[in-house]
Design a protein around this nucleic acid. Structure first.
Lengths: 254, 254
DNA sequence: TTTCAATGCGTAAATTTTACACAAAGAAAA
DNA sequence: TTTTCTTTGTGTAAAATTTACGCATTGAAA
């Protein structure tokens, strides 16, 4: 579908787009998925336009599925970016020239470099499950550690900042982990996730007590073996109770 | 400007609009500002389109000033509504006919009844300061008690629900009152405001203790006289400290 | 003058959050 | 095989926060 861009745009809203900050968790770090534009060293968030017969949420899901190969990921709208010049935050002349070499002169006029309002979503996904896939404009899609994220196109750095803020807010009001961790995980692994998101350390006894009090975790009879230490128990989220806690909300107060 | 609609629309984004849930507080009740459409009994939230050279926030401010006569009110974006059929939630045939009588047949095609994504804002204003002013489409603008709000056009009932939710969330994380109360007020009046927003009662001694702990209030040497009881002290927000508390955030934990 | 409803003020109880230590497991090193 | 080293599992006491609560005072109205 995206291979015929003109055709696609005829069926889409032109003044509205959406961008997704896709968070993954790997080796104790938060990662985001970025795309490199064809023929350039410029990176941006995955995003796209909303089809005329599609809701914004559906569009976000579609775009996310295209970029990651996953369906049914946790997606949340967090802010809509409506500044006048947000699409030309980094309007380096050379960049436009490079893009014109790849895409043809004037190609973007009226498509990319115009006034567009963008709805910001963030997504939480299981790092290992993702198949990073570039789109029509880009030739590389890969994870970046949050700390290493370069200067991005448009206002996408600001988007990540706000997404992270929203994620942190989120962690305080509902359980997290289901879409970020593998099915089975240890308590210390879950704790690392919380610590990474909130940039804080917790006492492991208090952490375990609080998390278990939510009644969303099941301790399995298995342990994780292989490390040079006492084998920790494996845990799993009880999906129904987890979903209920997401709906009702729990307060993570540490 | 709004009197020449076509001209206005040529300078505005057509696929994006914004709607404001304007909250006021009067006689112990939360109120919202609604508009009645010309020649009908149908009500909607104040809203409008974003000009091409104007940010979404600027547009919200402009629209709000037009409807209330106030500038610099507290405005916060809370959600963007992107459903496919959100503009035809109540597509009663008679309504369209009535509107066509007023505005001319087919007038709305391509302007109102098309796919539009709407950015939701809520505003907090001083009830007594507002000069409710209809816009080009409407002939009446007035306050409604939250409990009495009728079935509204489009998805505006859902918008109010979400706005209220966002407001409640807000109250938990930052001080409130500056834009909703007159300059001078009593502690019980401030407490009513909190109680009304959160639909809960608080112990007045604990409430006073907590609010004073934020260090944003100044007790004046005046008292409110006239009621059949002990005259309560008047208070005032210390603007600088209030703004700081809004920026930093305080947790209202009762 | 009395009544009545609302205000001003401080302390004790209950709950929640934080701090903290030692024994056991298991791979790796000696 | 034994020792070492890192990480895990577990419970209780102290501190901080939140909640509950009573009585004297004011001022208009009865």
């Amino acid at each position: 579908m995206e291979h015929n861009l003109k055709e696609f745009f005829d069926k889409a809203l032109k003044e509205v787009s959406l961008d997704c900050t896709v968070f993954g968790f790997h080796e104790g770090e938060l990662k985001v998925l970025l795309l490199r534009w064809k023929g350039t060293d410029e990176w941006s968030l995955p995003g796209g336009h909303i089809l005329l017969d599609e809701s914004a949420d559906d569009a976000a899901n579609r775009i996310l599925t295209q970029r990651t190969g996953l369906s049914d990921v946790y997606l949340q709208q967090f802010y809509t970016f409506g500044n006048v010049n947000r699409y030309t935050y980094h309007p380096e002349k050379e960049l436009v020239e490079k893009l014109e070499i790849t895409f043809g002169k004037g190609f973007f006029d009226g498509i990319i470099f115009r006034r567009v309002v963008s709805i910001g979503y963030f997504a939480l996904v299981e790092f290992d499950q993702v198949q990073p896939t570039p789109d029509w404009f880009t030739e590389e899609c890969r994870w970046w550690s949050l700390a290493d994220v370069p200067n991005l196109l448009f206002d996408h750095n600001e988007m990540i900042d706000r997404a992270l803020k929203a994620l942190r807010q989120n962690v305080r009001n509902r359980p997290i982990g289901y879409n970020l961790l593998p099915e089975k995980f240890t308590m210390p692994e879950l704790q690392r996730l919380y610590e990474t998101i909130l940039s804080r350390q917790f006492d492991r006894r208090n952490f375990q007590k609080l998390l278990m009090s939510y009644d969303i975790l099941e301790r399995l009879d298995e342990k994780r073996v292989g490390a040079a230490n006492k084998s920790p128990y494996l845990y799993r989220f009880v999906k129904e109770k987890y979903d209920e806690a997401v709906a009702v909300g729990v307060s993570f107060s540490m």
